[in-house]
């Protein structure tokens, strides 16, 4: 069976809009009858990803593929890229600017949380070109 595909533009200029895509995905997953645990993991991982796109990359595109075995979230941005992926995966490491930290973001838990809540995480990044996260969450 073909997966269900949802596509979103993540607006990079506005924090108040971050989370809209994950909220919409959550609604769809509930309508489909996925388990609360899967929905929770998808919502958290996707929200963290969306926030990252707003903080670091001025937005991007989110594509969600829903199949019977699980959910794949592809977050693609055209931001500066990640210099050191291994470092970025460490809890507490953050390059978020101060004004973002003052809003309560930038605790350096974004990527570590995405990894924690997903079954597989692929980070493809090129400096000056952008970053694509592929997050797989299985039922």
């Amino acid at each position: 069976m073909e997966p269900i595909i949802l596509k979103y533009q993540v607006d990079g200029s506005d924090f108040s809009m971050a989370g809209e895509a994950s909220s919409s995905v959550k609604k769809t997953l509930k309508q489909l009858g996925f388990s609360p645990d899967l929905i929770r993991r998808v919502a958290i991982a996707m929200y963290e990803g969306e926030i990252n796109m707003v903080i670091h990359a001025d937005g991007g595109e989110a594509t969600v593929e829903i199949s019977q075995s699980g959910v794949r979230i592809i977050l693609a941005d055209h931001g500066p890229g990640i210099k050191d992926v291994a470092l970025a995966m460490q809890e507490g490491y953050s390059t978020a600017p101060d004004e973002v930290r003052n809003l309560g973001f930038g605790a350096g838990m974004g990527l570590p949380n995405i990894k924690k809540y997903s079954d597989d995480l692929k980070v493809e990044t090129e400096l000056g070109v952008g970053t694509t996260l592929t997050i797989q969450i299985n039922t």
Binding site: M1, I4, K30, Q31, L32, G33, F34, I66, Q68
Partner: peptide, 23 residues
């Protein structure tokens, strides 16, 4: 207990087919 009134179908495959039709 959860009362899944917003759920499209009890069966995941049937629910997915309905969602595709909705889209």
């Amino acid at each position: 207990e959860y009362d899944p009134v917003m759920q499209l179908d009890q069966d995941l495959q049937a629910a997915m087919r309905k969602m595709q039709e909705i889209q």
